[in-house]
């Protein structure tokens, strides 16, 4: 479902980062491990089409990301890639369920309030649907971010450090949640993290080295 080949990225004035080739099929989970500064976020942004590929290729489904135009990349990302950031930002003017529905409409789909509500219910935050984002706890915010990332049943879910700020119990819980939801959506799940606790639970992993 997602695969890379010979991807390199060079920031101005520094040596190029060379990334190992990765691959992750639908319903599979891939863990990308690396310490700070090895280019984890850069890779995530390359995989998500947030940063354009300079060299090599990123293939999602049957499309090569680096061959899409800027606007097409934005649209493709909206429809096929769900991203959960380490720090999740929301549209302040909208409440919880509207933020989820915004993901539907920006991906070019019709807003489906029922689908959004049942997803929030599945994530155990259905009762907060009409609350303001700022009144939510960090954990609840992360669940909203997960809902927002998977509402369109993307081909790929990218998660940036989803567990690093959590204690062991919550860590396990979030991982379980991500696995369940990725499976329910039929997506490939790629987790980028320095959190080595996840290694034991996810057999399929790639380690980034500088």
């Amino acid at each position: 479902m997602i695969a890379t080949k010979d991807v390199k990225y060079k920031y101005p004035g520094s040596t190029p980062i060379v990334f190992p080739d990765i691959q992750c099929k639908a319903n599979d989970i891939l863990l990308i491990l690396g310490t700070s500064g090895v280019g984890k976020t850069t890779l995530l942004h390359l995989l998500g089409g947030i940063l354009s590929v300079q060299q090599g290729s990123v293939i999602i489904g049957d499309r090569e990301l680096n061959k899409l135009s800027g606007a097409a990349t934005d649209q493709f990302r909206g429809q096929n890639i769900g991203i959960i950031f380490q720090q999740n930002h929301f549209v302040d003017a909208l409440n919880v369920i509207e933020n989820v529905m915004l993901a539907q409409s920006l991906a070019g789909k019709t807003s489906d309030k029922k689908a959004a509500q049942s997803l929030l219910d599945r994530l155990n935050i259905g009762h907060k649907a009409n609350q303001h984002i700022k009144d939510l706890s960090q954990g609840e915010k992360q669940r909203v971010a997960i809902a927002r990332a998977i509402i369109n049943q993307p081909k790929v879910i990218l998660a940036d450090e989803p567990t690093s700020a959590l204690d062991d119990i919550n860590c396990d819980e979030v991982l379980k949640l991500l696995k369940e939801q990725a499976k329910a959506a039929g997506s490939a799940l790629v987790i980028v993290t320095h959190d080595t606790r996840l290694k034991d639970n996810i057999p399929n992993h790639v380690i980034l080295q500088s």
Partner: peptide, 18 residues
């Protein structure tokens, strides 16, 4: 103040024109 919001809107599929 909304630069993160605007970035997120882009991530969710809105092009520059939108």
């Amino acid at each position: 103040e909304r630069k993160y919001e605007l970035a997120i809107i882009r991530v969710l599929g809105a092009g520059r024109i939108k």
